[in-house]
Each structure stands twice: as structure tokens, then as C-alpha cells.
Design a protein around this nucleic acid. Structure first.
Lengths: 195, 195
DNA sequence: CGCCGAATATTGACACTGTCAATATACAGA
DNA sequence: TCTGTATATTGACAGTGTCAATATTCGGCG
């Protein structure tokens, strides 16, 4: 599958993963089409055979990020189903870690560098999968009986809003610096996810 | 104060307000130093006499946005001190409206186009002013006695996180489209701000 | 008034970017 | 093998952020 022929083989995938690399190293400002192409070892216009736009590449990278987030959260959920600890807190903490460990990726995913993510069907799919996972987690946490569907959706939105908002504000340095140490953050997060 | 002399007079302020204009019209991608300069009627390098960087101009614009947000929320708070309605909901609603009515401005303020906002002292000042306002609002809503300081800070962070997260996710089209009508949004928001 | 330094604005250049048209190369099936 | 299609390259274009060199204006001092 790997070759250095004239035809790259699977340039599309290579562009996405290399894009994630550069995103992680240089942040969102440092991510250019030409840089990705150069890194992959291909001419500056080659990406246009696979992506109509820079926007299209960014959307693909963002989608890949959402898949990674899903994987991360799902793994946590799965590994804690039989533990007694506070699952919601661990999920929220994982969300925060996901953002902090690679801010560029998180910002691309959520900070509107994309104009119309909802035009890309792959993106819509993984986004709703993430919501469904959240709902499953919440359902699981209510030991005493299931919630009605509507309440479940609302609870999921509440939880996601809180955790996402907290994470965004942390990432953007919007809190006073004395809150910004790890164990402080964890305490705050506990308050944020508690009802 | 207004003149079309060689020296503009107060180019710095003009650049900021014109920047906000373009931001509102073309969004964050469509905002360039040169476009702002052209619109103000000044050469493409003139801004460098007042801002060391594009980043510096963006930071100033962002700071101005935070001031507008403070004004907006303060007005709501002030006008509702003697009303019986749900202040928290109205504040949250105003926050959401502020974002929706000018997404470019909101994204610049919160979506990490800035690298190190906390280096600009004016920004730090208005940011903490905004937190203080939130705390005052929460304090006011607890009719039965004051909260201890620590609980107050935590409550403010909880509230801000929820509302900000909800707003961001709405702005980024992360929710299923059936949630996206105004009265639906208001219902959801009510759930988000309720304890 | 006239002069001079400081503040401010302009011009021109540079490397970099996204995008497109024209061209070249490689692959897959007849 | 030949041919069409998919893929990659090259070269161009306008637009960008930034900087150095230059020009213009302002404020204060004589």
C-alpha cells in the first residue's frame, strides 16, 4: 500500500493524518494546505484531487477528531461499567484531557474554523453518534429505572453543554489563573457535572 | 476629531470599530489587516503604528467585544432587579442572543483565534469584570441569605460553563436540527440554567 | 515665525497562502 | 497494446502578514 510512485496510493488518508499532525504541532493557524502537501511529499495542488477546498480538508480532519473523541469516551465508559467510581466525572475529565492534550484539534472541531460542517454527511453521522453515546452514559448512571426519552435528551444536552463550556473556557484562559492547576480543575469539574 | 488629513487622528479606535464591522459582515475568515486598513482609508501598513501584530489588533477587537457583552448583561441585570421573572434565564438568553446576532464577534472572543489573550492587560481586566458581574447576579438570585465566597465562585463557574457551552454548541451546529428553533432553544436553555 | 525630533503614514518588497488552468504521468480495462 | 480516466505536477494569479526605507505631519522650542 505504501509506495513512492507518481501516484501516491492513498493520498486522501495521508492528508488527513498529516493534517492532524501539523495541527497538533503548530496549532490551527499553522495549518496550511501547502504545508500538509509538502509534508506528505506531494505537490502543492495535489490535494485538490481529493478535496474540493481547504474547507473540505479541514472538515475531514475535524471528522477524524470526532471519531477519536468517540473512541476515547467509549473506552472510558466501557472500562467503567463495572466500577463504582463516578462515571460522569471520569467522562468529563476525559473530555477535558482530550482538549488539553491537543488544543489545536479540539479547536478545529468546535471553534468554527469550519463554516458549514453540517454539509458533510460523514461529520453529521459521527456527531450524532457522539450524542447517542452521551445519552447511553447518562441512562446507565440512573440506576433507578430508565428516563423517558425526552428527559434523556435534555439531560444529555445539559451535561454536554456544561462539560463543553467548562473545557472551552479553560482552553481559552478565561478563568483566573489560580483555578488553572490540575487538581483545582478536577474539583471544579466535579461541581460542574454534579446536578 | 474627525479629519481626512495625512494623520488620521484616532486611527487606533477606527481600526477596532471597523474591524468589528468587517467581522460582523464577513466572519472571522474574512477579516484581514489589509481589508480593515483599506476600509478605514489608510495604507496597508498603517496599522503597524498602533498594533505590533495582527494578533494585537484581534486582541483589541476581542476586548471591545467583551466590553459590549458586559454592557449587554449589565443592562439586563439592572433592568430586572425589581421584576419577578427568572433573571438567570434572561441573562442566559441574552448571552445566547449576543452570540447568535454576531457569530463572528463571539467566535473571535472565545474560539481561540487569539493565542495569548492573557498577555493583554486590558483583556484580563474586562474578563474578570465579567466574572464579577456573573457572581453578583447569582448572589442576587439567592434571596435567602448570601453564599460563602467559595461557593459563589463555583456557582458562577458552573453557570457560565453551562450557558457558554450551550451557546457554543448551538453556534457550531452540533445539535440535531430539530432543536434549533427559537422556542425550542429557549426551553432547552431553561433546563440548562436550572439547578 | 522657523526648525527639528517624534509620531504617524506611505511605498515597495518579500515569502507565503488558496485556487485554478494547463500539462504530464500512471493505472485499469478493452 | 491502446486508450480513457484517475491522479499528480507546474506555473500562474491575487491576496495575505510583515518589515525596511521613505515621506509627511505634528508639537514644542528657539
Amino acid at each position: 500500500m505504501e509506495s513512492d510512485t507518481y501516484h501516491h496510493g492513498n493520498l486522501k488518508k495521508a492528508l488527513i493524518t498529516t493534517g492532524l499532525e501539523i495541527l497538533s504541532e503548530k496549532g490551527i493557524e499553522g495549518l496550511s494546505l501547502r504545508k500538509v502537501a509538502r509534508r506528505v511529499g506531494v505537490s502543492h495542488a495535489a490535494p485538490y484531487n481529493h478535496f474540493s477546498d481547504k474547507q473540505a480538508l479541514l472538515a475531514a480532519i475535524s471528522t477524524e477528531g470526532h471519531k477519536q473523541l468517540y473512541e476515547t469516551l467509549f473506552r472510558i465508559f466501557d472500562s467503567m461499567k463495572h466500577a463504582s467510581e463516578d462515571i460522569l466525572l471520569e467522562i468529563a475529565w476525559a473530555y477535558l484531557q482530550f482538549a488539553v492534550e491537543d488544543p489545536g484539534r479540539f479547536k478545529l472541531m468546535f471553534s468554527g474554523a469550519l463554516d458549514e460542517e453540517s454539509k458533510h454527511p460523514e461529520f453529521v453521522e459521527i456527531a450524532s453518534k457522539n450524542i447517542a453515546l452521551l445519552e447511553a452514559i447518562i441512562q446507565f448512571c440512573k440506576e433507578d429505572g430508565r428516563l423517558p426519552a425526552e428527559a434523556l435528551e435534555i439531560a444529555a444536552i445539559k451535561l454536554w453543554s456544561s462539560v463543553h463550556g467548562f473545557t472551552s473556557l479553560v482552553l481559552e484562559d478565561q478563568f483566573p489563573p489560580e483555578y488553572m492547576q490540575a487538581h483545582q480543575l478536577r474539583e471544579l469539574l466535579k461541581a460542574v457535572v454534579s446536578p
